Computed example of a mutant assay.
Amino acid sequence: MIPEIRYAKAGDIQIAYQVFGSGALDLVVVPGWLSNLEIFWEDPAFARFLRGLGSFARVIIFDKRGTGLSDRVTDSPTLEERMEDVHAVMDAVGCKRAALFGYSEGGPMCALHAVTYPARTSALIMHGSYPRRTRTDDFPWGVTAEEVDRFVDSFERDWGGPIGIELRMPSVAHDPAVRQFWGRALRMSASAKTARILTKCNSEIDIRHLLPAIRVPALIMHATGDRTTPVACSRYLAQHIPGAKLVELPTDDHVPWIGCPDRVLDEMAQFLTGAHHAAEVDCVVATILMTDIVDSTRLAGELGDAKWAQLRAAHNEAVRRELAGARGKEIDNAGDGFCASFDGPARAIRCARAIRDAVERLGARLRIGLHTGECVLEPGRVSGIAL
């Protein structure tokens, strides 16, 4: 059940927020670039992550001004103005003091709040964030102005689709359901014009001068393979925030609910409560498909490295095309085989036949196995007897 949407007033702006969870401490979640509170809960991985936060905290989450269910804005809101959104929702729920968790662009806003209102900030947590967005001679890890312009220009051409998914969540970027969710989340969070305004605002962020003044406990987390924001940005944060703890996560995914969300939740729970987070496990009945190229070693030797690489690339494209058409979810692509899951055996069987035929047209033969049984669903992987 989706938590009730409520509204708080920040000046003349209505800010949409939700409150959920059963923990003893208050945790304010500040989303990144764009958000929509209702759409968040449509994605199983995101909903699972939010429930995880609620297992050890009373969670207060909101759509920043200009995004999601909050009032739209026509100008470019400053970081200070957006920080007042935090106060508005805290006051609305009677929260005097809270830990602040900001991921991506939400991080600098939380850091500014920690410096400006230390009495109302019990702890600071930043994930996949940065002290400055754009590159300078003394901060070579930011994006270039040209990269910002190219990203903004892509809104004119591609808005409505899953813009930036390959950089923000590469491990699931080929999953049709995730792509559909991300495209819908962006559409429902902002128009292309608003996204352009907010992206330009974020490109002006620079809080480096504030970092030494942060006096609350700070936890900094970052994916080592982050393709949107290099891990060096969080290393800089940890080096300049007194006493900050840095955790580098073994994933390429920028967003906290993909990659290793249980590790993120566990680090947060330990940091805030001193206790470990009990990971949520989902068990479902699913149909698992496994493929393997027949006599791949011999075939690779006959074709040579170049032609074998071309065949594998064409094979991967064909398999992913058929998986997308049958709503299959890619689990793994190790060596020359695929593992995928389906919520029904009929689609899995039809997909297996289509994959077999497509790969045979490329000049290769496949072994394909199907099995239906109980599986344990975890972000980024599936385990259980059915495999």
Rank of each mutant, 00 (worst) to 15 (best):
S122H: 05
G32D: 10
R6F: 12
R356I: 02
V376R: 14
P77G: 01
A218L: 14
V86A: 00
D12F: 11
E80N: 06
W308Y: 10
H209T: 08
G68R: 02
H240F: 03
V30G: 00
H371P: 08
D332C: 05
H127R: 05
Q14D: 15
G335M: 13
G369V: 14
R179P: 09
M268E: 00
F40H: 10
G243K: 12
E317M: 02
T116C: 13
M268G: 01
L25S: 08
W308D: 01
T134E: 13
W141I: 08
E280K: 11
I165H: 00
C283D: 01
V281D: 07
V115S: 01
A386K: 13
D336N: 09
H113M: 14
M1H: 13
G32Y: 02
I13N: 10
E84D: 07
I385R: 12
S70E: 03
D305M: 01
P230Q: 12
T136F: 14
D91V: 10
R365M: 07
P379R: 11
A352R: 04
P250W: 02
R187C: 11
S341Y: 04
I220M: 01
S189N: 05
W33K: 00
V255M: 10
S154F: 02
V281K: 15
K193Y: 05
K9W: 02
I2G: 06
A88S: 13
K96Y: 07
I258N: 15
E105V: 09
A238R: 03
A348K: 10
D295T: 01
G344R: 14
H113E: 13
Y130E: 04
P140Y: 06
I61T: 09
C110A: 14
G164H: 00
T67L: 13
T116K: 05
Y236S: 07
G243Y: 14
A313N: 03
L303T: 13
S154V: 02
W308Q: 14
G243D: 04
I241G: 01
T116I: 10
V73P: 07
E317F: 02
C201L: 09
L311C: 04
V93S: 08
G325S: 12
R215L: 00
S22E: 09
P256V: 13
T228K: 12
E360Y: 06
L210V: 03
K64G: 03
D262R: 06
A98V: 02
V30R: 00
I220G: 08
D43A: 15
A364T: 03
Y103N: 03
H240C: 06
V19I: 11
P140S: 11
T287S: 15
E204T: 14
G325F: 06
A352S: 15
A16T: 08
R321Q: 15
